[in-house]
């Protein structure tokens, strides 16, 4: 699957700013019944930004559609921008990464900050797909979070969550 980058950017921008304008602002930006003087209401700035964002989304979409009607040769990406082609394995790896992040966020209160960091670091090393330095990676995934824990708790006196399972 090759993402048509310009088109995707336009669709994403338009839908995000439309969601903000039509759903999130009415729900989450309460406007007081009385506003003193000529002070603009609190929703004015988010609305202005969302409208500008929607306009840019429409423009990006129009430019992408105009570009797609041109011969294939003229649709090549700019030479100065990295062309990242997304395939199914890429999407799968991204999904696994998101799951590991979620596991860290939701698992950390139970198992504690340091064990959760050790696990996350181990998963990230494994996901790099390069195992030339596998023993170094195994050692680092344990030693590095422990070293950071020592530095931050000793010198900055940070109290890291110990985890409900261990306390």
């Amino acid at each position: 699957m090759r993402i048509n980058r310009d088109l995707s950017s336009g669709i994403l921008a338009l839908s995000f700013f439309a969601l903000v304008f039509f759903v999130l602002i009415p729900l989450y930006v309460p406007v007081p019944s009385f506003i003193p003087g000529f002070a603009p209401p609190p929703d004015m700035w988010p609305k202005t930004t969302a409208v500008l964002g929607m306009a840019m989304g429409v423009l990006a979409l129009a430019l992408a559609i105009a570009k797609s009607k041109k011969p294939a040769l003229e649709q090549a990406p700019d030479a100065d921008v990295e062309d990242l082609v997304v395939t199914k394995p890429h999407m799968l790896r991204l999904a696994v990464l998101v799951v590991s992040f979620l596991a860290f966020i939701y698992g950390m209160p139970f198992i504690g900050f340091v064990p959760a960091s050790i696990l996350l670091l181990g998963v990230l090393f494994a996901m790099t797909g390069t195992y030339r330095h596998k023993w170094l990676m195994v050692a680092l995934s344990v030693i590095f979070p422990l070293a950071l824990y020592f530095i931050f708790s000793q010198f900055i006196h940070t109290l890291f969550p110990m985890g409900s399972l261990f306390s």
């Binding site: 209160p109 960091s117 670091l121 990230l124 090393f125 330095h133 680092l140 931050f152 940070t158």
Partner: peptide
Amino acid sequence: IPREVLLPCVLALCLFGIFSIATNPFDIT
């Protein structure tokens, strides 16, 4: 220094550094 060794360590540094600012797990999210 290989990037595959370095970049995950950068993330660990970020996690500890960010948490130490306000000890608020929401910042990590």
